[in-house]
């Protein structure tokens, strides 16, 4: 197996699926000739032609609307929204149309569509290029929201998302693109949607998180291990709908739970995870459920010290982990 980056893993998944299913096609701003602003789709237009790797106008509602129509007619579109924040003009198409087609047509129609979008901060991108917008979509039944934390998961989950018969929002952490590298199974490789994954075993505290923060939490856990505390790290992988069973099991195991997200604290995915734990695990809890998240301010700032203040890192996570371990 080759060691490849998170970005290359996503590219590989797209290439593999386009190669084995001619209904799969890619569309988005600059995805064709330029190969995407992050180079995720580089070379796909050359390989599969202009009709399967489409450069679109700067109109997100149009990109998603086109995808919905194609999906309903039997294609498997993979739309790219250049930055996750840009998805908002398309929310009507996603929330009112894509999510509800199966329901509205009483199962006669479906919408096998994937929308990929890079999200997250720590890359000096400021307000239009750093946000976490997953909670816009994590209360709409009919949608699936997937956020991989490793190159292998990114490949396996993207292939699963393309093969899924319902709309999947696939958010990729842009700082992870070139930061994370690991061995990734070649060719056909899938990871199930809706299943969280224990990324590290431990019996002192449980950290539940997703996205880039999984990597940060694993780094923090290694450091904390030197203080004699072993952390269990659960990667949600799918943030909607949540894997309740895995959350309950991980929380009950140690009774000390830290929930980490780089999204703003209030109303984040972790608020729902916290509610699941509170409802199911009261008699297994050994400490208050704690959350670590971005502050409730409008956006990730541009100024480097301010960006550091907003953004999570292994040091912040370790400090909070230690606090709960010592509780």
């Amino acid at each position: 197996m080759a060691k490849i980056s998170y970005l290359q893993a996503i590219h590989q998944a797209l290439d593999f699926e386009m190669g084995q299913d001619e209904n799969v096609f890619v569309l988005g701003e600059d995805v064709g000739k330029k190969g995407g602003v992050f180079k995720v789709t580089e070379g796909l237009q050359e390989k599969y032609g202009e009709l399967r790797c489409l450069d679109t106008p700067l109109a997100e509602s149009n990109i998603v609307g086109t995808s919905i129509g194609a999906a309903m007619m039997g294609k498997r579109p993979v739309a790219e929204i250049q930055f996750a924040e840009y998805i908002l003009p398309a929310t009507n198409q996603i929330l009112n149309e894509a999510a509800k087609i199966r329901y509205r047509s009483d199962g006669d129609w479906d919408c096998p569509m994937v929308i990929r979008a890079p999200f997250g901060g720590g890359i000096h991108g400021a307000l239009y290029h750093s946000q976490s917008i997953e909670t816009v979509f994590t209360s709409t039944p009919g949608l699936k929201v997937v956020i991989p934390s490793t190159p292998a998961d990114a490949k396996g989950l993207l292939i699963s998302s393309i093969r899924d018969n319902d709309p999947v929002l696939f958010f990729e952490h842009k700082k992870a693109y070139r930061l994370l590298k690991e061995e990734v199974p070649e060719d056909d490789y899938t990871v199930p949607i809706g299943k969280a994954d224990v990324k590290r075993d431990g019996d002192d505290i449980t950290v539940i998180t997703y996205g880039l923060c999984v990597n940060y939490a694993l780094q923090a856990a290694e450091r904390l291990s030197k203080d004699g505390y072993e952390a269990e790290v659960l990667d949600l992988r799918t943030v909607y709908p949540l894997d309740r069973e895995a959350i309950i099991k991980a929380a009950s195991k140690t009774g000390k739970v830290l929930l980490v997200t780089e999204d703003n604290l209030e109303g984040s995915v972790m608020s729902e995870v916290s509610a699941i734990i509170a409802e199911n695990c009261l008699y297994d809890l050994d400490a208050p459920i704690m959350r670590l998240a971005g502050p409730d301010v409008p956006s990730m700032p541009y100024s480097p010290p301010m960006e550091d203040y907003f953004m999570l890192n292994p040091e912040k996570i370790e400090a909070k982990m230690k606090e709960i371990a010592e509780h």
Partner: peptide, 10 residues
Amino acid sequence: PKLGESVTEG
């Protein structure tokens, strides 16, 4: 230095 968005090494 950081030489662009998403660039983490050089």
